[in-house]
């Protein structure tokens, strides 16, 4: 399936590049400002550490204001009150690890509309089980050659039924996937490879002498660099939220894009955002020496 989606993406790029000699330019077109809405985002990981819940408010889209964090009266996680670490930031203790298969309830009390009464918001998530990343290799995209561009192949055993995966990339222990567009999400449920051993080529990270970041910057790569992939098994609501957020952050074109829409969250009470969980497992690979890929100076 991943190959198929990869091919699809390639063909789309090909047709856009080949068939459409489009040009771009900024335009002046400003939408109205909406009333502020409460945003609650929080994730739980099986990796021990601080688990964070963030509470904020939306701001007008066209402007320079940054979303403002807001303090709540109380934030509870399964009857444990979270600690306010900074304005709008609530954390567990330093070594909290979500337990696979367990369901967590997040509850927030806050007077968002400033009417003197607290409103109640809640969400639940069930932590998925870890899938062990059994292999991680680099493969050339050009048939019959050992040369750049490479693609990372992540191998692991899928379990039957619905599974939702994400993957984050580190380069020499520095997180590359620190934004949604550099993060990878995928689902496996009713397709024929469900329950089988999977080797995914990850198209988000085509390895050449440099990675081109989505904001136009580049990240130079060298032979001997260590690439680490964190395979994340995502809860369904978190996967859905990440996937839709990626769609919204990608460019839209009439040929292939649907209408824009709000990212679907799971917070009750009308707040935006998501409360999700994921289980993690990592593996690393070293970039080989090959023509086109320089040695680190």
């Amino acid at each position: 399936m991943k190959y198929i989606k990869y091919t699809y993406t390639t063909v789309i790029l090909l047709t856009i590049l080949g068939g459409i000699a489009g040009c771009t330019e900024p335009i002046e077109m400003i939408g109205d400002d909406m009333d502020p809405k409460l945003v609650i985002t929080g994730t739980l990981s099986t990796e021990p550490g601080y688990q964070i819940v963030e509470i904020s408010s939306t701001v007008p889209y066209f402007g320079t204001d940054l979303p403002e964090n807001m303090d709540a009266a109380r934030v509870m996680l399964n009857d444990i009150e979270l600690i306010r670490d900074a304005p709008g930031i609530y954390t567990t203790g330093p070594n909290f690890a979500a337990v696979e298969g367990e369901t967590y309830l997040l509850e927030v009390w806050i007077d968002f509309d400033r009417d003197g009464k607290e409103e109640y918001y809640s969400a639940t998530t069930t932590v998925p089980y870890v899938h062990v990343l059994e292999s991680l290799t680099v493969r050339s995209l050009i048939q019959g050659e050992i040369n750049i561009p490479f693609v990372l192949l992540a191998g692991f055993q899928d379990t039957p039924g619905e599974d939702y995966y994400g993957a984050a990339l580190w380069i020499n222990n520095e997180l590359y996937s620190n934004r949604i567009l550099r993060y990878y999400v995928h689902s496996l449920n009713d397709y024929s490879q469900d329950g089988s051993f999977i080797r995914y080529p990850i198209p988000e990270w085509i390895i050449t002498e440099s990675l081109v970041w989505d904001n136009g910057e580049t990240y130079d790569l060298y032979a001997g660099d260590v690439l680490t992939v964190e395979l994340q098994t995502l809860s369904k609501e978190y996967y859905k939220f990440l996937q839709e957020a990626k769609i919204e952050k990608n460019q839209h074109f009439p040929l292939f894009s649907g209408p824009r829409g709000n990212v679907t969250g799971n917070i009750s009470g009308g707040a935006l955002g998501v409360f999700g969980s994921y289980a993690v497992n990592c593996k690393s690979v070293i970039l080989p020496s090959c023509p086109g890929l320089p040695e680190r100076p």
Partner: peptide
Amino acid sequence: PEGRYWFYNE
């Protein structure tokens, strides 16, 4: 869009 919020540095 008429509003925005932060998530995952986006």
